[in-house]
């Protein structure tokens, strides 16, 4: 085969609910994107995601120039695939939104178990907030409610958009919201109005929890899995009185952001730490042990492949990371501690 290899950048976002992988070309356009459930097994999700990616790109030769990971399992997935940059999801989402809508001022992001609000001015993040005490507005809750009312989550938005007078649902707490929805069903409110009412409640909750004291200015980008729900987009537009943009790849924006961060490193061919797509065939073992080095008794995580320790982390002092790092003494990078 003599097809010249295309330059690509791999971005991986492993969150609590979904694992997303993208390959971008050198213009940051999406060549392939995967959105799949993590199902509590981040390693397996990454391996199978990589396998799916290679299937999608079967007819093309991609030379991966850089890899970025993000999401709550960014550290773990970074070790498995050999990441060049490991970044938190707030930065990754902001970077991706800036790429899609260059003059973006506000990013609303709602994922499976968390939600974020990011304020940007002139292309840099100036403020952000992340939900801390309550998950009432997030995807998992919507998922749960769609199962309960027997409407697939994919159709939830379409129902909401049909509503002409949303029901008032108590949205401060997911348990109360659920009992309020049941009550509204029992008094005979139309299901469209209940679903759209729920969207309103979630938006109210989001803006109260995250938006207090912040200036939400247009252009506004709405991303994350929940952005697929047209009812949520409409409810945000109602509440803010502004147009809300949902990008085409709204559900893999974290992965896009981390691929862009990898691209920004400007690595030459062969400089990447990427271990290749065949890491999906290896078997990884993770375990934990208590370090007795001092009174902190930190819990240290160890990941092994074929009986050989790949990495250890989790201690406060950094002693285990140091011992394993091949480039000990190299410039420390600001990655997850």
């Amino acid at each position: 085969m003599d097809i010249p290899a295309r330059t690509g950048y791999l971005g991986i976002d492993v969150g609590s609910v979904s694992t997303n992988l993208v390959i971008l070309d050198e213009h940051a356009d999406v060549l392939a994107a995967i959105y799949r459930r993590t199902q509590g097994q981040p390693i397996k999700a990454v391996q199978e995601g990589l396998r799916e990616l290679t299937d999608l790109l079967l007819d093309q030769k991609i030379e991966v120039r850089g890899v970025g990971t993000t999401g709550s399992a960014r550290h773990l997935s970074g070790i498995i695939v050999g990441a060049d940059v490991v970044k938190n999801e707030i930065t990754a989402h902001a970077v991706a939104a800036s790429q899609v809508v260059p003059d973006v001022n506000t990013v609303l992001e709602i994922g499976g178990q968390d939600s974020k609000l990011i304020i940007l001015r002139d292309g840099i993040v100036t403020d952000f907030a992340m939900n801390s005490v309550c998950a009432a507005g997030t995807g998992s809750f919507l998922d749960h409610q769609s199962t309960r009312v027997g409407i697939p989550i994919e159709e939830f938005g379409a129902y909401a958009v049909r509503s002409e007078s949303p029901a008032h649902i108590a949205g401060r707490c997911s348990v109360f919201a659920e009992s309020d929805m049941i009550h509204k069903q029992q008094v005979g409110v139309a299901v469209e109005d209940i679903i759209y009412g729920l969207c309103h409640a979630l938006v109210r909750n989001y803006l109260n929890n995250l938006g207090k004291g912040k200036d939400l200015e247009a252009p506004i980008v709405f991303q994350g899995g929940v952005a697929a729900n047209a009812g949520m987009k409409r409810a945000f537009e109602d509440a803010l009185g502004l147009e809300v943009v949902v990008p085409a790849h709204h559900n893999v924006m974290g992965a896009i952001g981390s691929a862009i961060l990898a691209m920004e490193l400007g690595l030459e061919a062969g400089e990447t730490n990427f271990k290749g797509f065949d890491v999906s065939d290896l078997h990884y073992d993770t375990s934990t042990f208590g370090c007795n080095g001092c009174s902190n008794t930190c819990e240290v995580v160890r990941i092994k492949v074929g009986g050989k320790t790949l990495a250890r982390w989790g201690g406060r002092c950094g002693k285990w990371e140091n011992e394993d790092s091949p480039g000990a003494g190299k410039k420390r990078v600001r990655a997850s501690a």
């Binding site: 709550s72 970044k87 938190n88 999801e89 707030i90 930065t91 002139d122 840099i124 993040v125 100036t126 403020d127 952000f128 992340m130 801390s132 600001r334 997850s336 501690a337």
Partner: peptide, 21 residues
């Protein structure tokens, strides 16, 4: 701890970006 570390990392990115400007 993980939630705290995520917020700190994002905050430091923000500070660094401000410094550059």
């Amino acid at each position: 701890r993980a939630g705290m570390v995520t917020r700190i990392e994002a905050f430091l990115d923000l500070l660094e970006a401000r410094r550059k400007t």
